[in-house]
Amino acid sequence: MGSKLYFASPAGRLEDHEILLKFQDPASRNLAFNQLVRKYQSKVYWHVRKMVIDHDDADDLTQDVFIKVWKHLENFRQDAQLFTWIYRIATNECLNFLSSKRRKFLLPLTDVGAELAAKIEADPALAGDEIELKLQQAILRLPDKQRLVFNLRYYDEMPYEQMAEVTGTSVGALKASYHHAVKKVEEYVTRHTAD
């Protein structure tokens, strides 16, 4: 299952508890944090990128996420797994970013979805793949939180229990949200693809 991928530590990299231990010591704090960033940067970046689509936005937000991790890591109580905790910070950053963007430009939900869909249409990686393009457009039309649930479950294959920790939502509500998201996506792609 995909969840095993989350906590597998590539050779030569520190385990989470080693990073946290070294972070407590001021002499090795920077080294430990550098290891933490190298270990999780890719996962955080792609988690954010799936939500905001644009690389520059994802770059800014990824850096902001790690700055917040640095500020609060000292108070991390370790009652959750480190990556779950980082994922939660990243998730909140994404939702706040999309929400503030909507407030800033007084955009309704659908317009932000349309803006993201336009960005994804312009992405050369999707050129020529109509089904994939329609699938992405369908996903981008989901409300932010439902899209987050969809991404965590469909792409990251995260277990519902872990998703509950990241989103602060019950497992039952997450299952229902994902089920509805899948239905909406399937209907959209069916309706918008050529015969």
Binding site: N30, F33, N34, V37, R38, Q41, S42, Y45, W46, R49, K50, I53, H55, A58, D59, T62, Q63, F66, I67, W70, K71, I120, D123, P124, A125, L126, D129, E132, Q136, I139, Y155
Partner: peptide
């Protein structure tokens, strides 16, 4: 797919990112 078909970040992005983050630390 493990993630949507989006263009990859610029070459060397993940080599530079830790340095940029470290430079921004308070």
């Amino acid at each position: 797919r493990p993630r949507p078909l989006l263009s990859e970040p610029p070459a060397g992005y993940f080599d530079q990112l830790p340095l940029r983050v470290m430079a921004r630390l308070p």
